[in-house]
Each structure stands twice: as structure tokens, then as C-alpha cells.
């Protein structure tokens, strides 16, 4: 490999406009000479700005060197010229992923997959990001919100986080106060009827439904569905919300 590098370096020295800079840059990168690879590719790209393959490779070297902004710029310019460049799409997907912009990352990887559907690296990255995005969406929909239809209360009848609003009125404190009695009664009924521990209570009325559960021993979670909201739908949301609430309680505790 070193011989080949020497030959290519000589050729480039004798003919600075030679396209051998691409292979030389790739080999230098392969042996770990990232500084050399960057220098060669920067020079080559400056002379051949339309060489998409070289620019895509240059982006990879910039990424290797931790120059994320430069890599981003390089790949962005590549996809403007050649939208079907898989390397640049993969690179941009990775950079967006690193930046926490999962939607954008997925967009680039989807494009890469449409061009190279059998590329295992792209498939794996796509699958991983998709799962992360789905779990983020689940968490977002289940997370206790500032006000509206979900509230976590403590075991002494006080709202902890979230809130319940009905017809523009905050009913959190009143509901939280009554929840203690509901929770105690549910535990007593389940025990005396030999039903084991209670898991949840659901109520239905003309104005909507409530779902009450205990994510932890010292908290009660309430989800409220308005008129027309199906109790089974609220129940499904409540399962995710209970997990989030449990994590929230665990994180909030002072050791």
C-alpha cells in the first residue's frame, strides 16, 4: 500500500490536476494519515469542485478529523449537485442524528436506502433511528403535560406534575384531594374481594372518562378523556404514561 501511495504522490506532484488525488486521499485515510488525506483531498476538490466522489470522500475525512461543520457543508453541497450520492446521504444522516435531529437524519437515510436498498450500514442506521424516533414520540405523547388531561398526584392529595382542566377551569387540586380516598378504597376492595392488588380504575360518564392508576406506591396518575374519547384509548395512553411517571418519580426522589 505504501508503494502505491508513493507512486500516486509522485504522480500528483508531477501533475497537480491529476484525478489520482481521490485514490491517494482514500489510501492515506486507510492507513490513518488523516492530516495527509485532508490536505490531498482539499487540494483536489479545490481544483475539481464538480468531482462528487472526491467531495463525498473529503466529507468523510473531515468527519474523521472531528470537523463536523466542514463535513456537513461538504456533503450538503454534494447532495445539491448529486442528490443520489449514498455516501453524502449517509454522512448527513449521521450528522443530523448526532445533532439530535432524528427526522432529518431519517430523511437522508430513506433517500440512501432508496438508492442502495441492500446497504447493511444504512439499513441498520435507519432501523435504529426509526426506533428511537418512535420511542421519542411515545414518550412525548405519554409525558405528563403542563395542563389539560393528565396529572400525577402524591399520596397526600396534592398535584405533583401535569394538570387537569375542564371547561377552562383547573380542577387539579380538587381531583387530587379526592384521589387519596379512591386509592385507599380501591386497595381495600381489591384486598377484601381477594382480587390481589388493584391496577387501575376507569370511569365513564356523559362528559368523558377518567383513568386512575398508581405508577408508584406514593403517587396516583389520572388521565382524563373528554366527550367522545374512548376509554380504551385513554387506557392505552395511560400505560405509557405510568412508565414515564414512574421514571419521573424515581428521578425526582432525593437519595
Amino acid at each position: 500500500m505504501n508503494d502505491r501511495i508513493r507512486i500516486l504522490a509522485d504522480e500528483l506532484a508531477n501533475n497537480p490536476v491529476s484525478l489520482c488525488f481521490v485514490e491517494l486521499g482514500a489510501l492515506l485515510r486507510k492507513i490513518g494519515d488523516l492530516t495527509g488525506a485532508e490536505r490531498v483531498l482539499a487540494g483536489g476538490v479545490a481544483r475539481h469542485p464538480g468531482h462528487v466522489e472526491a467531495r463525498s470522500l473529503y466529507g468523510e475525512v473531515l468527519l474523521d478529523r472531528g470537523k463536523l461543520r466542514d463535513a456537513f457543508r461538504e456533503w450538503s453541497e454534494v447532495v445539491e449537485t448529486e442528490p443520489r450520492d449514498v455516501g453524502a446521504r449517509k454522512g448527513l444522516g449521521y450528522l443530523f442524528y448526532k445533532g439530535g435531529q432524528l427526522d432529518e437524519a431519517l430523511e437522508h437515510l430513506e433517500m440512501a436506502l432508496s438508492i442502495a436498498p441492500m446497504d447493511q450500514q444504512v439499513r441498520q442506521a435507519y432501523s435504529r433511528i426509526r426506533k428511537e424516533l418512535e420511542s421519542e414520540e411515545t414518550a412525548a405523547s405519554a409525558a405528563p403535560r403542563g395542563a389539560g388531561d393528565m396529572m400525577l398526584a402524591d399520596s397526600r392529595g396534592r398535584p405533583l406534575t401535569g394538570g387537569l382542566v375542564t371547561d377552562g377551569r383547573d380542577v387539579s387540586e380538587e381531583v387530587a384531594a379526592y384521589l387519596v380516598g379512591v386509592s385507599d378504597e380501591a386497595a381495600r376492595s381489591a384486598r377484601m374481594l381477594k382480587l390481589g392488588n388493584w391496577i387501575w380504575i376507569t370511569t365513564e360518564s356523559g362528559n368523558g372518562c377518567l383513568h386512575i392508576s398508581k405508577p408508584t406506591d406514593d403517587s396516583t396518575l389520572v388521565l382524563m378523556g373528554g366527550p367522545g374519547v374512548r376509554p380504551a384509548e385513554v387506557e392505552m395512553r395511560a400505560e405509557s404514561a405510568a412508565k414515564t411517571a414512574k421514571d419521573w418519580m424515581d428521578d425526582s426522589r432525593v437519595d
Partner: peptide, 26 residues
């Protein structure tokens, strides 16, 4: 007890209450 809570939530008295426990329902 549940009625107190649903009334406080502005839902009025419940038409249906289900207590789900580990081994059965009420």
C-alpha cells in the same frame, strides 16, 4: 368515592366504574 372524583373533574357522576385488579375486576 369515585363519584366525588369524577364530579370534581367536571364529569358528573359516573355511568360506569371498573376497578381492575391483579386477579379480577369489580
Amino acid at each position: 368515592r369515585v363519584s366525588h372524583t369524577t364530579k370534581a373533574a367536571g364529569h358528573g357522576p359516573p355511568d360506569f366504574v371498573q376497578l381492575q385488579a391483579e386477579n379480577g375486576v369489580l
